[in-house]
Computed example of a mutant assay.
Amino acid sequence: MGKILMMGILLMSLASCQKSSTNFESLGSTSWKSFRLHGKVKTMTLCQKGGQCFTFNFNVYGIEQGSLKDRKLVSNAGDTMVFERPDGFQDGSLVRETFKNGLLFESDWLDHKKQPTIIEIYSYDRDGMPIKIENYHQSEEMREIHKITTFFYKNNALVSSRETASDGSYDILQTYDAYENLVSVKDGKSSEYTYKYKIDSYDNWIESYSPSDLLFTRKITYY
């Protein structure tokens, strides 16, 4: 169970945000920060023990290149830029990403009719650190809040986050170590999962354990 939960959290990290300039190649929804990576990472291959591997390639600005593939600029007005790209899962569906002042402000998942089905809105503190993600489900009739994720920092380092479902079906508290690695997950039902890591010379984890069983490995190359 701990392996499945951690894989979900690792892949959900794709929703994290990146502050950057107005250089298009440095604007992206997935970045070094999304994966809590340190140093100028070029590639990262994440492998589940005995399972599937995922490889992520980053440009020199720290943006994961898959999030830039087939992306089109659809609006550029003042401090706001809007891009659209295939979501990679369904034919004809898109992800629309809105950046304001170099920060990801909103992500909309659009169906084949270009109608939003899922909407995420991001809030930041004055240092540009993400502090809240609001996730909405959209239908033709109404928009409903689905979940809210809040982030907490100490000296600009992530120390914990909380994901809460609007219907009260789950309330997940995540805590992080000094390297911003996930070390504890409490699901609100008296269950707790803990994780430990082997760290490389750049302070990035290359092996993860829960608590002593190997869960994942990461192979990382640098610029």
Rank of each mutant, 00 (worst) to 15 (best):
R162P: 00
H112M: 14
Y124G: 10
I172L: 05
I131M: 07
T80Q: 11
S208H: 07
Q174Y: 00
R162K: 06
D167S: 02
D167V: 06
F105L: 10
E97C: 00
W109H: 11
L103A: 13
Y153I: 07
N76T: 09
S184G: 06
S190H: 14
S212I: 14
L110M: 13
I148G: 08
F83W: 14
E84I: 13
L182H: 04
I148P: 05
L94N: 11
L173F: 08
S184K: 14
N76L: 06
D171N: 15
L110I: 08
S210H: 15
E192G: 03
L73T: 13
A178D: 15
R85G: 03
Q138D: 08
K154A: 14
F83Q: 00
Q115W: 11
Y195N: 09
D200A: 11
K198R: 12
D87V: 13
V82A: 09
H112V: 08
Q138G: 05
I121R: 04
H112Y: 07
D203E: 09
K132C: 09
F99S: 01
D111F: 00
F89P: 02
D111E: 13
Q90P: 01
E180A: 12
D200L: 04
N181Y: 01
Y122K: 03
A77M: 08
F99R: 09
L73S: 10
T164G: 01
D171L: 03
L110W: 11
